[in-house]
Design a protein around this nucleic acid. Sequence first.
DNA 1: CGCACAATTGAGAGTTATCAATTGCGGTGG
DNA 2: CCACCGCAATTGATAACTCTCAATTGTGCG
Lengths: 351, 351
Amino acid sequence: MLAKKILLIEDNLEMAENVINILRLVNYKIEHAPNGITGLALAKQAQPDLIICDVVMPDLDGFGVLHILSKDSGLCHTPFIFLTGRTETNDRRSGMNLGADDYITKPFEGLDLLKVVEVRLNKADQLKSNGHVSPTANNSDVPNGEMDFEKLLIHQHARTFRKKDIIFLEGQAAFDMYYVMKGEIKTYKVNHEGKELITGFHNPGSYLGYIPLIEEKPHHESAEALEDSEIAIIPKQDFLELINSSRTFGQKFIRLLSQNIIATGNRLLDIAYQSVRQRVAGALLKANQISHHGSEKDFIIMTRKDISNVIGTTTESLNRTLADFRDEGLIEVTDHGLRILNQPKLIRISK
Amino acid sequence: MLAKKILLIEDNLEMAENVINILRLVNYKIEHAPNGITGLALAKQAQPDLIICDVVMPDLDGFGVLHILSKDSGLCHTPFIFLTGRTETNDRRSGMNLGADDYITKPFEGLDLLKVVEVRLNKADQLKSNGHVSPTANNSDVPNGEMDFEKLLIHQHARTFRKKDIIFLEGQAAFDMYYVMKGEIKTYKVNHEGKELITGFHNPGSYLGYIPLIEEKPHHESAEALEDSEIAIIPKQDFLELINSSRTFGQKFIRLLSQNIIATGNRLLDIAYQSVRQRVAGALLKANQISHHGSEKDFIIMTRKDISNVIGTTTESLNRTLADFRDEGLIEVTDHGLRILNQPKLIRISK
DNA sequence: CGCACAATTGAGAGTTATCAATTGCGGTGG
DNA sequence: CCACCGCAATTGATAACTCTCAATTGTGCG
């Protein structure tokens, strides 16, 4: 197989050297551009298999480079990896949506870099060789086939979001719909005092962020990755066309929305009139139903903060209730999570 | 004009005499059937302009008569009025959905009877003479034209629901969508302990009860008339066809659902974390925005119970908060309702 | 007039939030 | 390798809030 060609766009020469040295270890062919402008030119000329690009650069920064490349039909599907400084990403709560397929934070381990590069090259190969077979069709992550929709996903490569990464923030303008392919995402709203209420958990096969597209409004909730996740990003235009042209897809969405309304209505009633004790019991039961995501049965892995933000209470109140439940022999608290011991009694409490 | 022909189906002869005597005063032509079976036969033969029918009868009761007539293309649009006993209707909370165009409770005043009959005859005339022009197009109650939808409404006559009548109850099977043409409706959910949470107010132009039709599930909330109202009833089949065939209508519904989701999400956040004081302020402001329904500006007419059921608290807590607001000069409490005196400060409190 | 029901007010109990302090844990840097 | 830092989890004490129960007043209606 031909050696893969990688384009590195990085203005800091020391850093560039560093990256190049690491990549050379695996026999990649490296092109280096010292700024965004020449990076663009080099990309068009060399047609690399993958692009690594620093975010912070004079003149044309990484976002600019990405933006321009995404308009280029020959390069828009080339894997694009950001090199981001610690300070920028450490504060993930700033709501950045990187827009690249993946990213690496500086400083980084050589192994991390190689891994990310390899994964991205492999995925790109898969997409190419599979032709029009959807990448999601290969693994069984995705429930009930989407037909039209999968066709649309083919032309999208999934982006990576690491644990705690923000996918979008309440109030931001909405440009895309999101489709979870791997991992787990929470959506939430924050009130005036900074208290958070979780509005939903989203596993593979779940759609995110489409309501603002319909309403032509900013995001009404935020989304954050609870674990490393892969998410396909469908442009607003494509989504709207799909809704408007495909009857089955439109109907599917109407049903999604309806279910959402019924569920939210029930939650309203619970939060309005049930005690914390009742809501905790209910939340544990629901979490237990849903979150068999790979883990043992009857095992709930969530931070106290997240559980309390589902219930709409403080961690302290939650914790007291959990302690009560533990003392009453209803649940078991281990290092790794919660296990329900007496489901019938919990059900009784939750009503 | 020809004398109108009215068919009375009533097994109690004394009651029948009574009704006939009253109706004769206005020169109606009366046919009388002493039971449901002959009533049906007489209806088909005489083709009356209006039918008055007792609910409680041996063999075939009023509901049975109505059901059979509604299948008859020649009679299904004939105004149909129920005569119901006090005991049945007094307990309106039993969730009956009468299904008739209107009803009269025994014992009744002669004037009431005549009024109801006259109103129904007039409406039927209007429908006939207007041909394919929607009756709703004549008055400006209904916002932004519905196009396809109005055509569908033509073939429906509105049913009357009196104040406090139940339109549908949570848990009941859902057969129809409802379209408010006049009056005001509240939808609400009730929890295990009988506490009520109001999920919405619906004015003319508003749709009700369609979500269960989409989901093929029982009603997820109940609906009750807050004042005398007129509601068109669209059969499930018609609604589903409309959703599936009309692009614009489907889109319209997607938007309705989306708005609902955004609004409910915000309410969740409020109820979860805001104090009663904050929620009362918010509710007053919102009620003030919406409920200029004919009444004076800045004037809120709602029972304390309804306000507290919007907020998710008890009437006592609500009332204490209202008393506070009154003492602080933020609102004025009169015999007929509440008036907001200091909107800016209320806004500040609500956040 | 009296009944049924909505609104109001009071007193006390129960629940939940807040503030504060402590413990435990994973990762970092020396 | 270990001390240290930051963060999550836990526990305690207290304050604040809201509900419940009870009693009273007001109001529309037969």
